[in-house]
Structures are given as structure tokens and as C-alpha cells.
């Protein structure tokens, strides 16, 4: 699916990367904990998150995440937005909560970027 369709499905507002809406994205990862994103998310996925600080942008940069979707109407501050511009990472914001965001994208055929987490790595 193109980033443009993600935008339409989520009625999202593009904050950074209006010129990148024709980019193709196939998978998604939703999380508020960046260490989980680092552990499991894959290059080229979109990241759905309720966290809006610099660490989201840096995490996305490190993993070559295709784009960031901020959920439940959250906006990033100006410094964070300019960091995303510098690192050329598209950001959009949607009014939907993460539950609804993931649900709507999943219903349109977007899949998760990891299927299951092996029990061998189970925590504790």
C-alpha cells in the first residue's frame, strides 16, 4: 500500500514528507516502547506510536523505518519535527487511537512486520 493510502485510511495529516506519499509500505509495527521497536521492527515498515519525542525519530532512523504515524492526534514539538526533516523521515498524525489505527490498516491488508515472537525469547 502507498503511504498516500495510509494517510487516507487514517484521515491523517502529514507533518513531514508530503513529497514521499507515493512510497510503498507493506508492513507495520505498533508500540510505545522504543526498545521493542528496536528489537522487532523491520526496515521499510511504518511505525505506529503514541510517543512523540526525538527518540521516536532516532529509532526510526536507526532501523530505516519508512514512516511514522503518531496516533490519537498527538503532535510532535518543533525540534522533533525538524529532526525528522533533517533525517528525511515522513511523519503523519491521526486522530484514531492505536487500537483503531492498527485495526483499520489491518482491515485494508497491511500486515505486521513480525508474525510471532518465539517463545524461546520469552521474557522472564
Amino acid at each position: 500500500m502507498k503511504l498516500r493510502e495510509v494517510k487516507e485510511i487514517l484521515n491523517a495529516e502529514v507533518i513531514v514528507g508530503e513529497d514521499k506519499l507515493d512510497m510503498e509500505v507493506k508492513t507495520a509495527f505498533g508500540a510505545d516502547l522504543m526498545s521493542d521497536v528496536l528489537a522487532f521492527a523491520k526496515a521499510g515498515s511504518i511505525l505506529l506510536t503514541g510517543l512523540t519525542n526525538d527518540q521516536v525519530i532516532r529509532t526510526a532512523d536507526i532501523l530505516d523505518i519508512a514512516a511514522i504515524v503518531l496516533v490519537r492526534g498527538k503532535k510532535a514539538n518543533t525540534e522533533t519535527i525538524s529532526l525528522a526533516k533533517d533525517l528525511k523521515i515522513p511523519i503523519m498524525t491521526t486522530k484514531y487511537i492505536l487500537f483503531e489505527t492498527a485495526g483499520r490498516l489491518y482491515a485494508k491488508g497491511m500486515v505486521g512486520c513480525v508474525e510471532k515472537v518465539d517463545n524461546a525469547n520469552a521474557r522472564n
Partner: peptide, 15 residues
């Protein structure tokens, strides 16, 4: 609140 501190850091580093 920064999105860290869930006890994954050293684990991620090692893996």
C-alpha cells in the same frame, strides 16, 4: 516516558 526502561536494552545489545 522516553520509551525506554522496559528492561530490553542490554538484551537487545547482546542479541
Amino acid at each position: 516516558e522516553m520509551g525506554f526502561g522496559a528492561g530490553m536494552g542490554l538484551y537487545n545489545i547482546k542479541s
